[in-house]
Simulated assay, not measured.
Amino acid sequence: MHNTSCHAALIGSYGNGKTHTLKFIKRQIENQLKDVIVVYISSPGDRILSLYSNFMYEFGFQRLENLVWRFLEFASGEKNLRKKVNEGEVLLPEILEIGKRRLFNEIKYTDFATAFLKLTMEECKFLAWKYLCGEPIVSDYRRELDVVTPIDNDDKALRAFMSLKRILSLLGNKLVCLLIDEFESVEYLLPILKQKMLNGIRHLIDLNPEGLCLIIGCAPEVWVDIVREYHAFSDRIFREITLRALNEEDVKQFISSYLRSSREESSDPPNDIFPFTEDAISEIHKAAEGNIRRTLMICNQAIDAAVEKGVSLITSDELKKLLPDLFELAET
């Protein structure tokens, strides 16, 4: 994935595990690859500006603040710069002037660069953060930041993203990976807004032949429409991955992993699926039809009901007693 732009669509019905899979991908990339930024975005929003803002919120204030100090160390050659500034060994205005000259040579979005450097100043760093996230900033506050116009449309949002990506690249970042969930929400946009949204993402892909990975999670019925109606966008998604419903063994492993992550370290269960039995797992699989979201819902409700009624082992028969309405409906 390093230095290569690759894009994929993760296709699955509601509850089939798109969110779990995207978050799993995030953990795997972060654990296995260095110099990579991975951001999970819960929804694309209604335009590119919204997508950019969601990206920035997930990127996070702390990470962005650390990034500006790393950039100033890179530009000035000073190590432990933040500590030296706080202790008075180095004057911040001098360092900012060095950083400004270097940054203005690297990116052409002057307002973005100015606000980015303002993150070093205690009196206005949170205002700079709001500006960089694309939030509305009144003119008086913009003057305080020394910026002229807000990031308030799709074109400026794309320029801002490209500016941030350039800064990351200067500091050794090889890849920015965007994991966009609930992509089917674009279907609810007005046709002209939907087209603008997809064209904007297509433009983002075209601007980044290297160093960008886009993985979107989408419901199959919406993805079919996108492929049929928006070739310019769908042709740039190199791979489609379809999530299937879980079989009974998958459900058993899934429940086991969830229980394992929730147990106290001192616990010593008789098996990995306790308090469920094998026949209970089979009933859960049939009732949920392999759907991850429904599987979790049934397990949560069953455990809560078992605790309330003092049931220590959830067998198939006990499961039906604990959740009679659900299993009567499933059998019907």
Rank of each mutant, 00 (worst) to 15 (best):
N3D: 07
T4D: 08
C6Q: 12
C6H: 14
I11K: 06
Y14Q: 15
G17D: 03
K18C: 04
T19N: 11
L22S: 03
K26C: 08
E30K: 10
Y40C: 07
S50P: 04
M56C: 06
E58L: 14
G60F: 11
Q62E: 11
Q62A: 15
L64V: 02
E65W: 06
N66K: 09
F71S: 02
L72S: 03
E73M: 07
A75N: 00
S76T: 05
S76K: 05
S76G: 06
L81W: 07
R82V: 11
R82G: 08
E87H: 10
E89C: 10
E89Y: 08
V90R: 13
I95H: 04
L96A: 01
G99N: 04
G99V: 02
K100A: 00
R102I: 10
L103E: 01
E106R: 13
T110Y: 15
A115Y: 02
F116S: 00
L117D: 08
K118F: 11
E123I: 13
F126N: 15
F126G: 14
L127K: 06
A128K: 10
V138K: 12
Y141L: 13
R143F: 11
E144K: 09
D146V: 08
K156N: 11
A160T: 06
K165N: 14
I167M: 00
S169K: 03
L170S: 06
L171K: 03
G172T: 05
K174R: 04
L178G: 00
L179M: 09
I180P: 04
D181I: 11
E182W: 00
E184C: 12
P191Q: 06
K194A: 12
Q195M: 14
K196V: 13
L198P: 01
R202M: 05
P209Q: 00
E210F: 15
G211V: 04
G211P: 09
L212P: 01
G217S: 11
V222K: 12
W223T: 09
D225H: 11
V227W: 13
R228L: 14
R228N: 11
E229I: 14
R236A: 05
R236Q: 11
I241K: 03
R244H: 14
E248N: 10
V251W: 02
R260E: 15
D268A: 10
P269F: 05
P269H: 04
P269K: 05
N271H: 06
P275C: 03
D279E: 02
D279A: 00
S282R: 09
E283L: 04
N291H: 13
I292W: 15
R294V: 13
T295K: 03
M297T: 08
C299L: 01
C299H: 05
N300C: 14
I314L: 07
S316I: 05
S316H: 02
D317I: 14
D325Y: 11
F327H: 06
F327V: 03
L329H: 12
L329D: 10
E331D: 03
